[in-house]
Structures are given as structure tokens and as C-alpha cells.
Amino acid sequence: MDALMMLFLALRLLLAGILLMAAAGKLQHRAAFAATLGEFAVPAALRPALAWLMPLTELAIAALLLFAASAWWGAAAGAVLLAIYSAVLACLLQRGLRPSCNCFGLEDAKPISNTTLARNGVLLLMAATLVYAGPAYAHASVWHYLAEAPALSACLAVMLAQWWLLHQVLRQNGRLILRMDNIELRLDAANVQPLQAVDTQARGLVVGSLAPEFTLPEAGGGRPQSLARLRSAGLPVLLIFSDIGCSPCAELAPRIESWHRQFRERVRIAVILRVDTLQTQQPRPPGGCILLLQEDRQVAASYDALVTPSAVLVSAEGTIASHLALGAKDIYDLLQATLPQTYETREIAA
């Protein structure tokens, strides 16, 4: 096998592997991927069909690339698909829009950027190289080459097994964190105290310092909300920092709405969500929790709250009233600790 044939074989395997990973991620989180298509302005009627069609197309192209006889057709189809993806990304970026890209599944969800476009460009160049070889080029058989190199085949099998195991461990770790949060909330509700407190380093801004001011658009296209306006009711403000691509944040969202309904007369709760420009027009449920939208975590960074979900309490006077709480359990504990302080402040003022 000459060097050129080895290069083309490597390109085919790499493209096929990337397309297989992308298709698997989309199929595994098909509902989330369908929702992501809405961020790309795809009509609602087309999203369910595209959520199936796109990953199945990627699977078909990957299969064509693996066989020598159909490698050119797979490369041509891959080049067309990648060209369409790149054109859509370039158009959105030029318009200043940065929707979340679930290209490889929910775990890899993050706003599109020039890096995303460059990655697609590299893949498109790889596919174009295979197309340039022409349909008459005699590509090497992947299966025959793997049979002649049993050590390489074994290494590839071990690498695939390790990747699958790592993926499962990361998913299981996320589920365990959510279960631990639920258990801690139930123990706290039953007034069961831990055997000993664990000393942890305080996170966030210094308690008593002036809270950074901000003005952010409200979900649904409402008028911008500032911290001063949130404090105008004379109540403390609980700022909860969330992220569109954060699974624990999505699990926490219904609890936040419940807290808002239960404690709205005692503390104002505002969720600051890292989101893309298109979602600023999504409607907010009537009477729901205040939902403010930020890009690039600029407000979260000013509060040293780059981990999500996290929360900090701002007093009615505009000062930092708590350390940064991380996770559902700590946020709930912070909210519960805030309520008695609110009553004491009102009694003293009376």
C-alpha cells in the first residue's frame, strides 16, 4: 500500500468516525437536538423529521466511506452535507447569531463560533480531497487492511471500548450528582443533619461588597431588567446562574419555578441564563420566574459564578449577602437561610 493510498484510507476512517460520533450523539439526545433545530430557525413542522433524517444521513455517509467501492460517493455526499452545514453556520455568524450546537450530542452543546466553522471547514477539505481523487481511484479495503494488521485492529477495538466506557461513566456521574442532590434535599426536609460539617473554601465575591450592576434583556422580548430594578421592591434578590447546555440546570428549572411561587413575597428570584441571541424572543410563562438572558457569561463572570447551576444572594441595599452556592442542594439551603433574615429585617423596620 503506497503513501497516497494510506492517506486516503486515514481520511476515510477519520471522516467516517466523526460522522458516526455525530450521528450517535444526535440519536441519543434526539429530543434535545430537535429543540436545537428551533434555535436555527427551522420550522416546527420540519424539526421531528430532520431530527431523524440528519443523523441517518450521517450514518449512511459513514457506511459508504468504509467500503472501497463506494468511498468516492460517500466523500461526495459528505462534502455536500458539510458544505450545507458550513453555509448555515457562516450565515448565522455573519448575522451575529450564536445558537447552541448539539453536533455531537447534549454533552457537547455550546454556542457556535468561528471555531465551529473552522472545524467544519477542515472536515470539508478532507472530503474534498477524497472527491478530487475521482470515482475511478482504487481505494484500499478497510476490512482487508485490518485483517492484515491484527495488532492495529486490536488497538482500534480497545480504543473504541475505552471511549464507550468513558462516555458511560460520564453519563452515570451526572445521574449520581442529581440523585445525591435529591437525597440531600429529602434529608434536609426531614431535618436530618450530617454527622460533621465539611470545611469548604468560600466561593464567589466577598460578603458585604457592592454587587456588580448589570442590565440584561428579559426572555420573551421584554424590557431590560437591571439589578437596581430587581431590588426596587425592597426585597433581597437571589441570582441563579444557569446555562442552556447544562443538564443539572435543566433538572433544577422546575424547582426554581416552585420556589418562585412559594416565596415570591419574601425574596425575588432571577435566573440569569447563558443563551444565544435567537432565544431572546422565546415567550416566558405568565407569572413565571424572572428569566434574564446573557451571552458569553459576562454577568456570571463579574459575580465569579462560572460554574452552573450556582446562586448568590444580593441584599435589598445592593450588597453581596452570601457566598456562592453551587448545585441544587446548596441553592435551596441558601434560599431557606434567606427567609428568616427577611422577616427579621421587616420586623426591625416596623
Score class of each variant (00 low, 15 high):
Ala3Gln: 12
Arg12Pro: 00
Leu14Ile: 13
Gly17Trp: 08
Ala23Ser: 09
Leu27Phe: 10
His29Lys: 12
Phe33Lys: 01
Ala41Asp: 10
Met54Phe: 10
Pro55Arg: 02
Ala62Val: 01
Leu64Val: 04
Trp72Tyr: 11
Ala75Pro: 01
Ala76Pro: 08
Ile84Lys: 04
Ser86Ile: 01
Val88Asp: 07
Cys91Ala: 14
Leu97Gln: 14
Leu97Ile: 07
Phe104His: 05
Arg119Gln: 06
Ala133Asp: 05
Ser141Leu: 04
Val142Cys: 12
Leu146Arg: 02
Leu146His: 03
Ala151Thr: 12
Leu152Pro: 07
Cys155Glu: 14
Ala157Met: 13
Val158Ala: 15
Ala161Trp: 07
Trp163Gln: 11
Leu166Thr: 13
Arg171Leu: 09
Ile177Glu: 07
Met180Gln: 15
Glu184Gly: 10
Glu184Thr: 11
Arg186Phe: 08
Asp188Thr: 12
Asp188Gln: 10
Ala190Leu: 12
Gly204Asp: 06
Ala219Asn: 02
Ala228Pro: 11
Ser232Gln: 12
Leu238Phe: 05
Leu238Cys: 06
Arg261Thr: 11
Gln262Tyr: 12
Arg264Pro: 00
Arg266Lys: 13
Leu273Cys: 04
Pro285Thr: 05
Gln294Asp: 10
Ala311Leu: 03
Val314Pro: 00
Ala325Leu: 04
Gly327Pro: 01
Lys329Val: 09
Leu334Lys: 00
Gln336Val: 11
Thr338Pro: 02
Glu347Asp: 15
Ala350Val: 09
